[in-house]
Amino acid sequence: MRPSRDSGGIPLFQVQLKKLPGNEDVLLPRRMSELASGFDLHAAVTEPVILHPGERRLIPTGFAMSMERGLEAQVRPRSGLALKHGITCLNSPGTIDADYRGEVKVLLINLGQEPFTITRNERIAQMVIQVVPEVELVEVEELTDTQRGAGGFGHTGTK
């Protein structure tokens, strides 16, 4: 994996997107501002979907993607939907591995008080592309000591 560099010297990776049949009108992921880290994902529902309070649904986006080894895509909630309507993503962040070639779908849940209607091309989530380092897991007999040690949940503070 050898990314090129943009004019500011930042690594530039190429991710290929393919619109799936019947979704020619659905917008591909895109950044909504110049410095946004996430690409908004749009709903490719064929008819409006009503998400009732407490209900979860898998929502299609109408595209598949190809990333090179060493990248992953993370699907995350949109803050505006979460704040205004209680709509968020389960399994968040959801991981799309570099070898997955199926349709990208978003698992939404309504944690709000009112039903929420999802329409075609509505922005439903965001996707952030991350670099994943090569890691080798090694079994050992002993671990190195730290000041924290085995202190777990709530160990570093009272609130």
Rank of each mutant, 00 (worst) to 15 (best):
D6L: 09
D6P: 12
S7R: 11
I10M: 11
P11T: 14
F13Q: 13
Q16Y: 13
E24W: 13
L27H: 11
R30M: 14
R31C: 03
L35S: 10
L41G: 01
L41D: 01
A43H: 05
L51R: 08
G54P: 04
G54V: 03
L58D: 05
L58A: 04
P60R: 01
G62C: 09
M67T: 03
R69F: 01
L71G: 01
V75E: 05
R76H: 15
R78A: 02
A82N: 11
L83Y: 12
H85Y: 08
T88K: 15
L90Y: 07
P93R: 13
T95K: 12
D97N: 05
D97Q: 04
G102Q: 08
G102F: 02
L107E: 07
L108H: 08
L108I: 01
L111T: 00
P115N: 07
F116D: 14
T117E: 02
T119W: 08
T119R: 15
T119Q: 14
E122W: 06
E122K: 15
E122R: 13
V138P: 00
E139S: 11
E139I: 03
V140N: 03
V140T: 12
V140M: 04
E141W: 00
D145G: 05
A150F: 02
G151Q: 12
G152A: 12
T158S: 10
T158M: 05
K159M: 00
